[in-house]
Design a protein around this nucleic acid. Structure first.
Lengths: 147, 147
DNA sequence: TATTGTTATACTCTATAACTATA
DNA sequence: TATAGTTATAGAGTATAACAATA
């Protein structure tokens, strides 16, 4: 008897998690991209600011994990953000290989300057899908992370 | 009184849909990336094959929408896939601006060659999160698309 | 005039591996 | 030896706009 897994049909793309997650993200990101474009900040930098605001001072590898940006990309991005005064870094005194990153007041100002717009986008989404479903979706996505 | 939306705190990144969707996708994609690497096929080409298998012969703009690949990128990708015999194209006789794309037997062979492995990855995920939760997640993602 | 797809440009991200400094 | 981060390289993606062919 052949391996049953090789006989199962390939699922519809709408029922394949990687594609479904990508499409959903593209949908949700569309208005946010417009916002970030106006603000002159890339998606990746926005995620860095959001993660640092949330986590406080963390090492660069942690920023990489939080933001899903590769370390080589992050090196370049943080260099630009430090030059622009949006983040600051210091060497970890306990382990001089480590670089500790934190958001600056100027970086935080970018978040607050766009908070109202970001909330408006979120409210529009909530009005379309409903708060309960969005929360359920976020719960499931978080659970997927933990596994 | 100030706009109340500007006073609301920025949500945790784990409760922000764009970031949560990205992280979830990175988690799910990790084993699939290994599979595709072994198969020598890019993520984008894999999505093209999956979408064509599902939709039959469709025009290039539709491939772009289905796969979330921009038209300029798709032009390059389809050129390579046509060269490799994985897809075929013909001009739409009813509208000669349109390019109709379909998967070839050789392209379909890539899907079937990796179906067992892909199913194994899916089964592992299902074992961790549970079929019910995965289906609920897919339902919510599909609903997000429709809105 | 509008639309489909291509091309060109400049920029960014990725993957990978080699490298430096530190542990 | 192992780890954190940097650098270098090649490949590929994006956004944008200009363009050709067709409608």
């Amino acid at each position: 008897m052949p391996d049953p897994t090789s006989q199962r049909p390939i699922p519809k793309t709408s029922r394949a998690l990687p594609i479904a997650l990508l499409r959903a993200r593209e949908t949700v990101m569309a208005p946010i991209r417009d916002m970030l474009q106006d603000a002159g900040i890339s998606e990746q930098k926005w995620r860095v600011l959001r993660s640092l605001e949330e986590c406080g001072q963390i090492e660069q590898s942690a920023v990489s994990r939080e933001t899903c940006v590769s370390m080589p990309s992050l090196t370049r991005i943080l260099r630009a953000m430090e030059r622009d005064g949006h983040i600051a870094r210091k060497i970890d005194p306990l382990d001089k290989r480590r670089s500790l990153i934190r958001i600056t007041a100027k970086g935080r100002a970018i978040l607050t300057a766009n908070a109202a717009h970001a909330n408006k986008i979120y409210d529009d989404l909530e009005a379309r899908l409903g708060r309960e479903k969005i929360n359920k979706l976020l719960d499931l996505l978080e659970e997927l992370q933990r596994h």
